[in-house]
Design a protein around this nucleic acid. Structure first.
Length: 614
RNA sequence: GGGGGUGUGGCGCAAUUGGUUAGCGUACCAGACUGUCGAUCUGGAAGUUGCGGGUUCGAGUCCCGUCACCCUCGCCA
């Protein structure tokens, strides 16, 4: 190595016609070989791209032989000269296609065995294999691209927040279990056998403590961990943009998040998002879209046909037994008008009804509006004049399809959402630019099927001040909170709230959810204790970045924007985590397994392992 | 935890009503070839049909169980 002490002078993918004549040293992976006997080519790849290597015809020292002996994914270092290719030999398909590097020295830095899959842009292999060899998958340009974008996006977020005077604070990963919310991942303490750390479900408590600490504006790109069953858009560990501010109202939090999102769309996509984002109170979202995260690109809206006891709606006037039964029980009768839906085939309409059934409803009653009046299952109940009033309530026009649902409120809600989605899909209505939406004034409490009320967000969420008297009277239903969600095209991106900083208000919320003071003290001691010493009014927000980036980058899966993701069962195909540990490790921690897993030799994961644990 | 789907050389697929030595493409390896860039041509190697059991003269194929992965419901304050 006489020429240079450094490994390389240029990146493979950055060489252009203007570099012709330059003496270069390159490092990279052998991407391809094309051996023509007298002349041989090698494509060398690094993060920046591909460059063609060639041995000159009159090369000495057996360089052409050395090039021929290379194999896929060998890591090599080459010394050579950039040469402009003859006009006829240029490759306009490649950024580096006008040049090639004439090699005069080649060093093999590392050999490679046969790979489990090819390093190429288009690849049709099982995802599990890609994850098992993720370090090879990362060499593929489209995979790498996601992490270039992710870097830019994180940078954009940091820029926006730092410009707005935020402090980036790292909070602990080893913390205390809180019995609320999701299942914790637990970490045993060695020094205090029988005691446990928990990995954070979110930095919620710490960010509020930052406010008590006077840090005023906090943010963190934080890892969060929840030991729950997974979904396509969920990982056991995921990344949140976590933020908190003191002395602010809702508007200031929402505006800040809007600034972050606007900058992201501008920096990553070159698009200008309209601000302010649309806002919809929770109750209105439920009434109009039967969802707390509606996709506003879908224009279909839900119409209430039941009315109230004081002002009965048209549904009760039809003499339709199914509606009457539901109305008598205080259920919902609501419908959706599908403009032009009369064009849909019976099979397509059946698929709408099936969507409602899959969502738990008994069925859906529908009719088409033809020039000669309504047709279809519901039409025989639409006699004059009550039928006309019913159709008018739904806004039905000739050529429409009207779909109605009657059921207990919760079931009807889920089914209406399903119908709205399916219908939007069938009529190809979901299009246009991204729609960002705030859902505000979430209910403070949520009723579960067993009649138990629990905080819908978390127990430190402040109620809307107008509803505090209700709260003090012990009312739970209808009490609104100062919590808000951000929704993008029907996907919940994040949520936040203005927090309670007043101890008396906090106590009334605790008692409303049936948490006595002693129990509250035991669970949230550290936060309540802090609030004794001067807690500023504060509020914040958190955005699920993996989910956002998946949408923003146009990725197929949340796993595509995570460098080392886990499977749907929370395992890591690369490290084979989770895995058993040595008995000594358990002893050191004062742990003993109460039940051993069943014979591991029957499982596929163990089948190829050379040594079985004894 | 419930439901659905998938599982055959490294990878993508095929294999008739249960019937010869489980085929094809690609990648890989070797050889040939003066300019290719998804090179081309010739040849070679590569399989416990996820795993276990059952039915059968005979199982990739039928039955039972199980494992893994993907999707979905519950769950995720």
């Amino acid at each position: 190595m006489s020429r240079s002490a450094s490994w390389r002078t240029h990146a493979c993918g950055e060489l252009r016609g203007g570099d012709a004549g330059a003496e270069v040293v390159l490092c990279g992976w052998v991407a391809n070989r094309r051996d023509h006997g007298a002349v041989a080519f090698v494509d060398l790849r690094d993060r920046r791209g591909l460059i063609q290597l060639v041995a000159d015809e009159d090369a000495s020292g057996g360089i052409d032989q050395a090039l021929r002996k290379l194999h896929p994914e060998y890591v090599i270092q080459v010394y050579g000269r950039v040469r402009l290719r003859d006009e006829a030999n240029r490759n306009p398909e490649r950024p580096t296609g006008d040049v090639e590097v004439v090699v005069d020295k080649l060093v093999t830095l590392s050999r490679a065995e046969r790979l489990p899959f090819e390093i190429q842009d288009e690849l049709d292999v099982p995802e599990i294999l890609r994850l098992e060899y993720r370090y090879l998958d990362l060499r593929r340009p489209p995979v790498r691209r996601m992490f270039e974008l992710r870097t830019q996006a994180n940078h954009s977020i940091r820029s926006t927040l730092i410009e707005n005077d935020f402090l980036e604070i790292e909070t602990p990963l080893l913390t205390r279990s809180t019995p609320e919310g999701a299942r914790d991942y637990l970490v045993p303490s060695r020094s205090r056998p029988g005691s446990w750390y928990a990995l954070p479900q979110s930095p919620q408590v710490f960010k509020q403590l930052c406010m008590v600490g006077g840090l005023d504006k906090y943010f963190q790109i934080a890892r969060c961990l929840r030991d729950e069953d997974l979904r396509a858009d969920r990982q056991p560990e995921f990344t949140q943009l976590d933020m908190e501010m003191s002395f602010v109202e809702e508007d200031e939090v929402l505006q800040l998040v809007e600034r972050v999102m606007v900058a992201l769309y501008s920096d990553l996509r070159g698009e200008e998002l309209p601000t302010p984002f649309e806002r919809l109170p929770h109750a209105e979202a439920i009434a109009r879209y039967a969802s707390d995260k509606p996709d506003l690109r879908n224009p279909l809206e839900v119409v209430d046909l039941a009315g109230s006891p004081e002002q009965p709606g048209p549904a009760g006037q039809l003499g339709f037994g199914v509606f009457d039964t539901v109305l008598a029980k205080g259920g919902w009768v609501r419908g959706i008008r599908l403009p032009g839906g009369a064009e849909l085939s019976r099979k397509q309409i059946d698929s709408i009804e099936q969507a409602a059934k899959d969502a738990g409803a008994g069925g859906a009653a529908w009719c088409k509006i033809g020039a000669d009046g309504p047709t279809g299952p519901l039409s025989r109940f639409l006699k004059e004049p009550s039928g006309a009033a019913f159709i008018e309530a739904l806004g039905g026009q000739v050529g429409d399809l009207l779909v109605t649902l009657a059921d207990a409120p919760r079931r009807a809600l889920v089914a209406l959402d399903a119908v709205r989605r399916r219908a939007g899909e069938l009529l190809d209505l979901v299009q246009g630019p991204d729609r960002l939406l705030w859902i505000t004034e979430f209910p403070l409490f949520e009723e579960f099927d067993d009649g138990v009320w629990a905080p819908a967000h978390h127990p430190f969420t402040a109620p809307v001040s107008a509803d505090i008297p209700l709260l003090q009277k012990g009312v739970k239903e209808g009490v609104r909170s100062r919590a808000y969600d951000l929704v993008l095209n029907g996907v919940e991106l994040g949520s936040g709230s203005i927090r309670i900083h007043d101890r008396e208000l906090q106590q009334s919320v605790f008692s409303a959810i049936g948490l006595d003071p002693a129990e509250a003290q035991r669970r949230f001691h550290h936060l309540l204790e802090a609030f004794r010493f001067g807690a500023p009014p504060h509020g914040g927000f958190a955005i699920g970045l993996d989910r956002l980036y998946c949408l923003l980058f146009g990725a197929d899966s949340i796993r595509d924007v995570i460098a080392f993701p886990k499977t749907a069962t929370g395992s890591c195909p690369l490290t084979e985590a989770p895995a058993p540990v040595d008995e000594e490790q358990l002893q050191e921690l004062g742990l003993a397994l109460s039940a051993l897993p069943s014979d591991p030799s029957t499982s596929q994961a163990e089948a190829g392992t050379a040594s079985q644990p004894s």
